[in-house]
Simulated assay, not measured.
Amino acid sequence: MDRRSLLTNGAAAAFGALALTAVTSGNAEAAAADWYGGRGLHPDPASTPVPNPPFPHGLNRAERHELETLDTLDFDVFTNQKWNRLKESHAQNIRVHWPDGHYTDGIDKHIEDLKGLFAWAPDTRIHSHYLRLATDELSAVAGVMQGTFTRPMPDGNGGFIQPTGKKYSINMATIGIWNKRGTMDEEFLFWDNKTFFGQIGLG
């Protein structure tokens, strides 16, 4: 299976392919036991907190590094805006695909875009990765991003949208393609923009 081709041509399909690979590799049964703990299916994690599960069984060193790095990226580096540490997870020339379909190239542009999220919601944070998968050079986590629209939001035309004071809590997913140096060459970000903007009063 050409995983890079799958991601490049359809990242949503690749997320399912990644899960299927875990099943065929024999790791999924133990991983599912970890994630669900025998308690049945998840509620909506964005509205009902779900504990972060243990890492799946059977990971090799590189796969565990990928998932540990994604945890650090979201829980510490992103949440606390430690932009000088983004190079621990992102290659200098990383390509980042955003939920609206556009992509950017380079770590500096990605840092600029991430800072933009905090400009209008300074309490933006990710503390949850309720699903974790890794196989070879691919990893995927699903989590919850939260924040509050408390500062003016640039509208892209030189003006600002005034804050509504509304909170948001949305499900998100990150799929990464990793290189031999242990950083991502390509990152795919997913969340529902309609839900996102609706929650902050712009939908």
Rank of each mutant, 00 (worst) to 15 (best):
D2C: 06
R3S: 10
R4F: 09
S5H: 09
S5R: 13
A12K: 06
L18V: 08
A22P: 00
V23N: 06
S25M: 05
N27C: 11
A32P: 00
G37A: 13
G38Y: 07
L41D: 14
D44I: 07
A46V: 04
P51E: 12
P54Q: 12
H57K: 13
L59H: 01
A62Q: 10
E68H: 04
D74E: 12
F75E: 11
F78T: 03
N80G: 00
R85Y: 02
R85L: 11
K87W: 03
H90F: 15
Q92A: 15
R95G: 01
W98T: 08
T104E: 08
H110L: 14
I111H: 05
E112S: 11
D113V: 13
G116Y: 05
A121D: 08
D123L: 02
R125C: 13
H127K: 12
H129W: 08
H129F: 01
L133E: 12
E137P: 00
E137I: 08
A140Y: 07
F160M: 06
I161N: 05
P163S: 05
K167T: 12
Y168K: 05
Y168V: 09
N171I: 12
A173F: 07
G176L: 00
W178A: 08
W178G: 01
K180F: 01
M184L: 15
L189S: 10
F190H: 10
F196E: 05
G201C: 02
L202T: 01
G203D: 04
